[in-house]
Amino acid sequence: MPVSAAGAAPPVLPPLLAFLLRRLLRLALLLLCVAALAFALARAAPVDPVEAFLGPAAAQVGPEQRAAIAARWGFDQPAPAQFLHWLGNALRGDLGESSIFAAPVTQVIGERFAASLALMLPAWLLGGALGFGLGLLAGMREGGWLDRAIRLYAYLLAALPGFWLAMLLLIVFAVWLGWVPVCCAAPPGLLPEQVSLAQRLAHLALPVAALSVLGVGPVALHTRVKAAEAMRADFALYAMAQGAGRAEVALRHAARHAALPALAILFAGMGELFGGSVVAEQVFAWPGLGRAAVEAGLRADVPLLLGIALATALFVGCGNLLADLLAQAVDPRQRGRA
C-alpha cells in the first residue's frame, strides 16, 4: 500500500520533502483511480470501438473481419485484463493510437495541450490579477458603493453561463465591431509558419477575454472577504494609528492576507478553468485539448478520451499541489506543517 508507506516515512526527511513525497504518492493514487473509472465508463458506454474505427466503411466489412479486428485488439478478453493491459502500456508511455487524428494519443495531447495552454495561461493570469485587484478594492471599502458595484459584477459573472458570455463577446466584438476574427487560432488556409504574431494575438484576444472574465468572479469574492476581514483586524487599526491611510493598509496588510485564499482559489480552480476552456474552445473553434475531448467523445475515440481524462486529472492535481506549496511560502505560520 503506497499510502501507509508514505505515512511511515522516516522522520529523517526534511518536512518539505516528506510533504512533497506524500503528495506525489497521493497524486499517483488519484491518477490510478481516474484511469480505472474512465476505463470502466468507456467500457460501459454503448460504443462499439470496431464500428467507430471503421467509420463509414463499416457497411463493407463482414462479421468475421470484425471479429478478427476485435480479437486483434483484445476485446475478447475480460474487462480487468483489458484494463491491466492498457495500464501497462500507459505506464510505458504508450497511450495508444487516436483513431480520429490518426496519431499517437500522447502526441495529440501534447500538441493540443500546448494550444490550450496558450489560451488558458493568459486567461488564468489575467482573471486572477483582475479578480484580486477588484476584490482588494471592494474589501478596502466594505459596504461602500464601489464594493457594491464590484460585488454585483462578481455575482453576475459567477451566474452567467460561460458559453453564453463567449457568444455574446463574439457577436459584439467579432461580428458587429469586426475588431477580432470570428474563429480559430489562425487565419484559415495558412501554414503555421506563415502566421504572424499579430495574427496569433488577434485570434487569442476574444477567447482569452471570455475565459478570464469567467475566472474573475470567484477570485474577486474570496479576495474581498479576506481583505475586508484584514481591514477590520487589530493590526489594520494599529497601522492606521501609526498614520497609515486606508490604501496603504490595503496594499501592505490586506493584500498579503488576501493573497493566500486568492492563490488557493486560483490554483484549485484550474479544473474549472479547464472545464471553461472546453466550452470556450468549442465556441471559438480553438484547436485545443478541450475541443479534442469533445470530438473524442462524439466520435468514440476511446484511447484519446482516456488519455485526456488522465492528462486533465494530472493538470488539476498539480494545480492543487502548487496551491499548497504556495500557501506554505506565503504564510510563515504554515511552514513546516504538511
Binding site: 487589530d234 493590526f235 494599529y238 494609528a241 497609515a244 496588510h253 504564510d331
Partner: peptide
C-alpha cells in the same frame, strides 16, 4: 496627528501583522 504627534502602544501581540 496619528503616528507623528500622538502615538499608540497597543495591548497585545495581535496588533502586529502576523505575516510581516
Amino acid at each position: 496627528l496619528r503616528g507623528r504627534r500622538v502615538a499608540l502602544v497597543p495591548q497585545s501581540i495581535a496588533w502586529l501583522d502576523p505575516l510581516v
